[in-house]
Design a protein around this nucleic acid. Sequence first.
DNA 1: GCGAAGTTCGACATTTTTGACGCAGTCGCG
DNA 2: CGCGACTGCGTCAAAAATGTCGAACTTCGC
Lengths: 234, 234
Amino acid sequence: MKPTHILVVDDEPQIARVLRAGLTARGYEIRTASDGVSALEVMQDWPPDLVITDLSMPQMDGLELTRRIRTKSPVPIIVLSVRDQERVKVQALDAGADDYITKPFGIEELVARIRATLRRAPSVEEAVTVLNIGDFHIDVAARRLMVRGREVHLTPKEFDLLLHMARHSGKVLQHRALLAAIWGGDSTEQVEYLRVFVGQLRKKLKPDADTDAPQYIVTEPWIGYRFEPGKSTP
Amino acid sequence: MKPTHILVVDDEPQIARVLRAGLTARGYEIRTASDGVSALEVMQDWPPDLVITDLSMPQMDGLELTRRIRTKSPVPIIVLSVRDQERVKVQALDAGADDYITKPFGIEELVARIRATLRRAPSVEEAVTVLNIGDFHIDVAARRLMVRGREVHLTPKEFDLLLHMARHSGKVLQHRALLAAIWGGDSTEQVEYLRVFVGQLRKKLKPDADTDAPQYIVTEPWIGYRFEPGKSTP
DNA sequence: GCGAAGTTCGACATTTTTGACGCAGTCGCG
DNA sequence: CGCGACTGCGTCAAAAATGTCGAACTTCGC
């Protein structure tokens, strides 16, 4: 079984060394980066299963790094920091981090939290680059969409929304869940955003002849929306 | 929009009260239990989307509770404790907990961690996806119902009611219990709601030819209702 | 200035709640 | 024994509450 790949991002070489030693000893494969910018570069060639990042760094700090990663990948992120203020923790977690650990910490605790986090993670399923369901052909990497052989241009938010729904097609996705997934941790109350974007998607996805063809996006009043991609997976 | 259900398990009434207040104010629906044993009981009738438990409790402590829950459900668990020893944290996380927070903590941090945890969780809804009993085929995730091969559209409340009855089929469900489960803790007196919704369900579930076929939903006068899904589970 | 994201608004639909009514069974009383 | 009052149940329909749609308007970043 391929070892779990962990990217450690920290500007203090000593910490990085300690982590590398402790984690390598436990069977993980480690790479390190000393700031956010180089971390993103490393991720290009070496997509990790988990990212551990310090909060304060030159170039691009952990918070910004977390946000950047989240725009394109659901890889689990654990944030380390000496700062113990609640505000900072909330910021990091809402930016998309999965856990926040205050220094100093024991390596055993870190490893236990790594295990707990990976247990939840969808693991390598993110490697899926193209989704083919029903009338839809979604190229995740290129962020392009073809419906019934025709290319449809979507704005970023529209694409995220459609992708998320496609990944859970058939299921009813509750308002809160969708909002949390696309717009992030807080703002789970703006159901209006959903209405607007669902409306725009419907308009863009609809066949040219707008007969009373069934919608791809079905609304479940009071609950949320359900995505039905058409023929092949009813 | 159905709120997220959180079960708080703590033997100190004061903590439980504070959590209930803080979380309710943020739109979560809360139930509390004072020890592991009663927590498991509550989960029977009211499956939560997240469990928050204290570590030290009479009857069954948080560690044991975590293990028991994990034997039958993937629901996210957050452990609270005054104990800050690494060994304890590792134990709890490895028992299946998703996060471990040391008291004292700020409510904002707790809420941020709740959000982060829920973001990862597959949500209880999706866990048990299809229920197949008698003439009924209930897709919980998609919130769709087929009776004798025919799709029947139900409104949210109707669906919740039917689902709850189906999950306890055969048993007599008391008025209060049903009302509490579908309409929430208070309003356990509006037996009229039940009459109306049971009536609507009966109408929608009835075979086209309304012969004197036996009802799926049987009235137990003075007590409540009983669900009999048909052939396979008499 | 432009395009996209975020926000607001009014018309419209559906669901939920509430109230009224009839039916059937039970009980007490003449 | 028969009859009316009472109670719980089922049905119906109007009222109230809430959600949805679609479009237009504002804000933001480049």
